[in-house]
Amino acid sequence: MLRVDIEKQLGEFSLSASFSSEGRVIGLFGASGAGKSSLVNMIAGLLRPDRGTIAIDGETVDDTAAGIHVPTWRRRIGYVFQDARLFPHLNVAQNLDYGRRMNGLASDPAQHKRVVELLDIGALLDRRPGKLSGGERQRVALGRALLSKPRLLLLDEPLGALDEGRKLEILPYLVRLRDEANVPMVYVSHDVAELRQLATQIVMLKQGRVTSLGGVKVLT
């Protein structure tokens, strides 16, 4: 599903990671500054590795030796950022529809209905992002990413900006997403409890290096 073997120098910090995974939810675990976000940004194509390869679903999207770098917009990924990044000039319905329009996909009312129900955002469709709570925003961002029909969903600390109560409110949606949406995910977090609930496989990062790889039990 996902194969990563890259090196990247970011100022003083050097990132060197190699792993491959067939897991449904790859948990990318590490303290802040371990290089998790940089790694995810490279998988998304927002950051270019200095050396190495990245393959998503069998397609090589980065290969520095062969000069391959597929731009972000052609990678067919979904990305949920910590800060939601909903488009402020569009309402929720238009935000949800954005990826479908940009990819020129036919409208799929059944899928739309499924995602809206899964995330419980039907009542928000007419609202502007400025009028949503943090948790609502994150649910809409999830829906927006899913509706672009990605082959891989990247979630970079999607609960990181929420307080404890809100986290508990969103977690069940993420579990349902994992079990029902049928999209493989890379889930970045520094929170052991979150990953225990969600991840099927763990990649542990420490100071830019992969230190362990395996099932959820490596989170001790």
Binding site: L46, Y98, M102
Partner: peptide, 21 residues
């Protein structure tokens, strides 16, 4: 906020579409 443009790119928008949308 340039991060909004990044978000648009991850949703499959080519650079000229990001500009216009």
């Amino acid at each position: 906020d340039r991060r909004l443009e990044q978000a648009a790119e991850t949703l499959g928008a080519a650079p000229w579409k990001v500009f216009f949308t």
